[in-house]
Design a protein around this nucleic acid. Structure first.
Length: 302
DNA sequence: CTCGATCCCTGGACGC
DNA sequence: TGCGTCCAGGGATCGA
């Protein structure tokens, strides 16, 4: 569940920890989540990590051209390139002393020039790693939607209000907005008092703007709190985030709404568990939530 | 265009 | 204690 705030937290941690380091060698474990494992082994050694950026839920490790290999070959082999990192559900990336035992599910180790290794671990391997030249990176990133932290009032409305899809599906759609996932979609809809199953076309201008502001406020706050640690999210320093303590809807089925004390319900919307207050977030006609779970049996999630 | 279903994968919760 | 089952979910893909 690393979403925008969690990925931003990891990116900031990496920036502190590994900027300027040179990659000396690459060790791979399971590689079925890597686009082209051989390309990592062939192209990463010798390059310096010059920047760490976030793009939606992706991290981009900007890599220097290979030392002393100018001019660049025709296919761009030695030119500046990037390592694209997606944490999927359970991905973690963090530096560790090279001698330290590996965590379980460690699949990639990049030996750095200061005696540490940058390690990627991912139990479920829903993440993704790819070595990308400038051209391939540009292709990869086209088609993503607006940055939710930067999107303007008008652009947000244009991207949402013209669509017949459910608002929850639109918030999760990375070609509409890049970086929003299940947690922050539900949290922003609760705050904006909009039901997740409402259709984009049914939102008026005021509601769209309320939702945009709710989303931005929540994302900013969550970044300050270093993200939400549910299940096993840890940042690049191995520390959990704190924003899960501020969740108002997500994971709170059967508990009382912080605003009106009505019991929070759960429904499957856009294929995902969606948590909402049936009073604050009135449902569209004919919408059916899942039955209220028996008392004392609220789903444990942390 | 939008939908749901299915797959990928593992760990943890839960029922018996 | 142990075993089977279900569920979590980002994203790709496919058929309706």
């Amino acid at each position: 569940m690393p979403e925008l705030p969690e990925v931003e937290t990891v990116a900031r941690g990496l920036r502190q920890a590994i900027l300027g380091r040179r990659i000396l060698s690459v060790t791979l474990g399971k590689t079925d989540f890597i686009d082209d494992p051989a390309a990592l082994e062939q192209h990463l050694p010798g390059r310096q990590i010059e920047a760490v950026e976030r793009y939606g839920k992706f991290m981009l490790l900007r890599l220097s051209a290979v030392n002393g290999q100018t001019p660049v070959t025709a296919n761009g082999d030695a030119a500046a390139a990037s390592l694209l990192v997606h944490l999927g559900m359970t991905g973690q990336i963090a530096p560790a002393p090279a001698g330290q035992p590996h965590e379980k599910h460690t699949h990639v180790c990049l030996l750095l020039d200061d005696g540490r290794e940058l390690r990627y671990t991912d139990a479920r391997r829903f993440g993704r790693l790819a070595y990308l030249t400038k051209t391939l990176l540009a292709e990869e990133l086209e088609g993503f939607g607006a940055d939710p932290l930067e999107v303007s009032k008008d652009e947000f409305r244009n991207r949402v209000c013209g669509r017949r899809a459910r608002i929850k599906a639109l918030l999760l759609d990375q070609s509409v907005l890049r970086g929003v996932g299940n947690i922050y979609a539900d949290e922003s809809l609760w705050r904006a008092r909009i039901h997740p199953a409402r259709l984009g076309t049914k939102l008026n201008r005021k509601q769209a703007e309320t939702l945009r502001r709710a989303l931005q406020n929540i994302l900013r706050k969550a970044i300050v709190m270093r993200g939400s640690s549910i299940s096993d999210f840890l940042d690049a320093a191995g520390e959990p985030g704190e924003y899960q303590r501020h969740h108002r809807a997500y994971g709170r089925e059967g508990k009382k709404c912080y605003r009106c004390k009505t019991v929070i319900r759960r429904a499957i919307v856009a294929g995902r568990s969606s948590y909402f207050c049936p009073r604050c977030q009135p449902s569209p006609r004919g919408f059916v939530a899942l039955p209220v779970p028996p008392r004392g049996k609220t789903r444990r999630r942390y």
